[in-house]
């Protein structure tokens, strides 16, 4: 029984690890997608460091357990147990030292990565875009030709007539040229400053390729800034349970070149 346990455990460990290492199976990619943001490589780097460290711990501890159980299986009746060399002390010391060092490193380096993304102000030239989440869609708003966002009035929200944000064009001139669209279109290599807010419950803004994830909390205006480094079309999905349509709540992120973006924005302004 002990041998079987050891073998099964070691097979489980090796297979589990192998899938992490090979992670591409007939078009099913079980790994992070391409990184399309300026800060993403630092997140990926931090993730890989953690992956190596904890992967090593995982494999070593499971194999150790498997081996010890294997060894324990054919010992004779009346066996006198052996104490692990040094007893509990090496366990405690190695746990404190090895794990301690690992977590110190991870917290110092990781905190810096975190701080550089979420604790820094956006660049002054960043393109401001207003993002509103609601059951169960995202809408995006650009300031339009006047460079000013119209004020939001919750009582004016009327989704059936396309007033998703609650603008008041009758009285508010700044609101008249606001561009409201259902996809987030941004220029590549330019800092973007999103202002996230929700009109009903908590939603979340998650773009895998940007390594960006932020809850959108009603009552709060949450700034989020990033720079996309690759053109392409990516999915923005909601990750915070928001009701029955949660799984269908998404939008597309289109990263265009600056020229394409300018043209797109001009077309949109004309269409509003």
């Amino acid at each position: 029984m002990g041998k079987a346990f050891g073998v099964v455990l070691i097979i489980i460990t090796l297979v589990s690890t192998a899938v992490f290492i090979f992670h591409d199976f007939h078009g099913i990619s079980l790994w992070l997608p391409v990184d399309a943001s300026a800060h993403g490589h630092r997140v990926d780097h931090q993730l890989m460091e953690t992956m190596y460290g904890s992967g090593l711990l995982f494999v070593l501890s499971q194999i150790m357990l498997g081996l010890f159980v294997w060894q324990a299986s054919d010992r004779p009746e009346g066996w006198k147990y052996k104490i692990f060399p040094g007893g509990a002390k090496p366990m405690v010391i190695s746990a404190i030292l090895l794990v301690g060092i690992e977590i110190l490193t991870l917290s110092f380096v990781g905190s810096k990565v975190w701080a550089d993304i979420y604790l820094t102000p956006a660049a002054p030239e960043a393109l401001p875009i207003d993002v509103q989440a609601g059951q169960f869609a995202f809408y995006f708003r650009y300031a339009g030709a006047d460079g000013k966002f119209g004020a939001l009035h919750a009582e004016k929200i009327d989704e059936g007539s396309g007033n998703f944000f609650g603008l008041d064009p009758r009285n508010d001139v700044a609101a008249r040229d606001d561009v409201v669209v259902a996809s987030l279109v941004i220029p590549v290599n330019r800092p973007i400053l999103l202002t996230l807010h929700s009109k009903d419950v908590i939603h979340s803004f998650y773009v895998r390729e940007l390594r960006i994830h932020q809850d959108i909390v009603p009552g709060l205006m949450i700034p989020l800034h990033f720079t996309a480094t690759q053109t392409g079309r990516f999915e923005i999905v909601c990750t915070q349970l928001c009701g029955l349509g949660h799984y269908q709540m998404k939008a597309y992120l289109e990263v265009k070149t600056q020229e394409e973006f300018d043209k797109w924005l001009k077309d949109q302004e004309a269409a509003q």
Binding site: G134, Q135, F136, A137, E159, G160, L244, G245, Q248, M249
Partner: peptide, 11 residues
């Protein structure tokens, strides 16, 4: 009024 929350424009 009738709406679809999954497709908020539906009205």
């Amino acid at each position: 009024p009738v709406k679809c929350n999954v497709h908020p424009w539906m009205h």
